[in-house]
Amino acid sequence: LKLEELTVSELRQQLRLRGLPVSGTKSMLLERMRG
């Protein structure tokens, strides 16, 4: 599964599971997911 294919709400869910901030735009969330 490519990160880009996730919805913003799915990205936020994944970030929350990792204890990361869930604020910002989709591109910011993607950068955060990539670490």
Results as ranks from 00 to 15, higher is better:
residue 34 R to M: 05
residue 3 L to P: 11
residue 30 L to Q: 14
residue 3 L to D: 12
residue 18 R to T: 09
residue 9 S to K: 15
residue 29 L to G: 04
residue 14 Q to M: 14
residue 4 E to I: 04
residue 27 S to I: 07
residue 17 L to V: 13
residue 19 G to E: 09
residue 23 S to C: 08
residue 33 M to A: 11
residue 18 R to S: 10
residue 13 Q to D: 13
residue 14 Q to K: 11
residue 23 S to G: 14
residue 30 L to I: 15
residue 1 L to I: 15
residue 10 E to F: 00
residue 27 S to V: 06
residue 13 Q to K: 14
residue 10 E to M: 02
residue 14 Q to I: 14
residue 23 S to E: 14
residue 1 L to M: 13
residue 13 Q to V: 12
residue 26 K to Y: 15
residue 8 V to T: 14
residue 30 L to M: 11
residue 17 L to F: 08
residue 7 T to E: 07
residue 16 R to C: 12
residue 1 L to V: 11
residue 14 Q to S: 09
residue 28 M to E: 15
residue 25 T to C: 05
residue 6 L to N: 11
residue 13 Q to T: 15
residue 4 E to G: 03
residue 14 Q to R: 11
residue 11 L to C: 00
residue 25 T to A: 08
residue 11 L to T: 05
residue 33 M to E: 11
residue 22 V to P: 01
residue 27 S to F: 00
residue 6 L to Y: 06
residue 31 E to V: 00
residue 29 L to Q: 04
residue 19 G to K: 09
residue 28 M to H: 14
residue 17 L to M: 12
residue 25 T to E: 13
residue 29 L to K: 07
residue 29 L to R: 02
residue 11 L to F: 00
residue 8 V to L: 12
residue 21 P to W: 01
residue 5 E to N: 13
residue 31 E to A: 09
residue 12 R to H: 03
residue 29 L to N: 01
residue 11 L to V: 03
residue 16 R to W: 11
residue 24 G to Q: 00
residue 19 G to M: 05
residue 31 E to M: 07
residue 34 R to N: 15
residue 22 V to C: 09
residue 26 K to P: 01
residue 21 P to D: 12
residue 20 L to D: 02
residue 33 M to D: 06
residue 22 V to K: 03
residue 27 S to L: 08
residue 26 K to M: 01
residue 32 R to S: 04
residue 12 R to Y: 04
residue 4 E to L: 00
residue 16 R to P: 00
residue 25 T to D: 15
residue 22 V to N: 05
residue 22 V to S: 11
residue 20 L to S: 01
residue 15 L to A: 15
residue 16 R to G: 13
residue 2 K to C: 11
residue 22 V to Q: 12
residue 2 K to T: 07
residue 26 K to T: 05
residue 21 P to F: 00
residue 24 G to E: 07
residue 25 T to R: 04
residue 13 Q to R: 09
residue 29 L to D: 04
residue 7 T to F: 01
residue 29 L to H: 07
residue 5 E to K: 11
residue 24 G to K: 00
residue 7 T to C: 03
residue 2 K to G: 08
residue 33 M to L: 15
residue 34 R to A: 12
residue 34 R to C: 13
residue 15 L to W: 00
residue 14 Q to C: 07
residue 7 T to D: 12
residue 21 P to V: 07
residue 12 R to Q: 14
residue 2 K to N: 11
residue 13 Q to M: 11
residue 33 M to R: 02
residue 25 T to F: 02
residue 6 L to E: 06
residue 20 L to R: 00
residue 15 L to R: 01
residue 15 L to G: 06
residue 28 M to C: 06
residue 22 V to L: 10
residue 22 V to W: 03
residue 32 R to V: 06
residue 6 L to V: 06
residue 29 L to P: 00
residue 16 R to K: 15
residue 12 R to E: 09
residue 32 R to Q: 09
residue 10 E to K: 06
residue 32 R to M: 06
residue 28 M to R: 10
residue 9 S to V: 12
residue 3 L to F: 15
residue 7 T to S: 13
residue 8 V to G: 05
residue 3 L to C: 00
residue 14 Q to D: 03
residue 16 R to E: 14
residue 19 G to V: 00
residue 25 T to P: 08
residue 12 R to M: 07
residue 12 R to G: 03
residue 20 L to V: 03
residue 19 G to R: 07
residue 3 L to N: 08
residue 31 E to L: 04
residue 24 G to V: 01
residue 10 E to Q: 10
residue 35 G to R: 05
residue 28 M to S: 06
residue 4 E to S: 09
residue 13 Q to S: 10
residue 27 S to A: 12
residue 27 S to W: 09
residue 9 S to A: 14
residue 34 R to W: 03
residue 9 S to T: 15
residue 6 L to W: 11
residue 8 V to H: 04
residue 19 G to C: 03
residue 23 S to L: 06
residue 20 L to E: 10
residue 10 E to D: 06
residue 5 E to R: 09
residue 26 K to A: 13
residue 34 R to I: 07
residue 33 M to T: 03
residue 4 E to R: 03
residue 7 T to M: 02
residue 20 L to A: 08
residue 3 L to Y: 03
residue 2 K to E: 14
residue 6 L to A: 07
residue 15 L to N: 08
residue 17 L to S: 09
residue 19 G to F: 02
residue 8 V to S: 08
residue 27 S to G: 12
residue 20 L to M: 14
residue 3 L to Q: 08
residue 28 M to F: 02
residue 30 L to E: 09
residue 25 T to W: 02
residue 10 E to V: 05
residue 21 P to G: 08
residue 11 L to K: 02
residue 1 L to R: 09
residue 19 G to T: 02
residue 34 R to L: 13
residue 9 S to L: 08
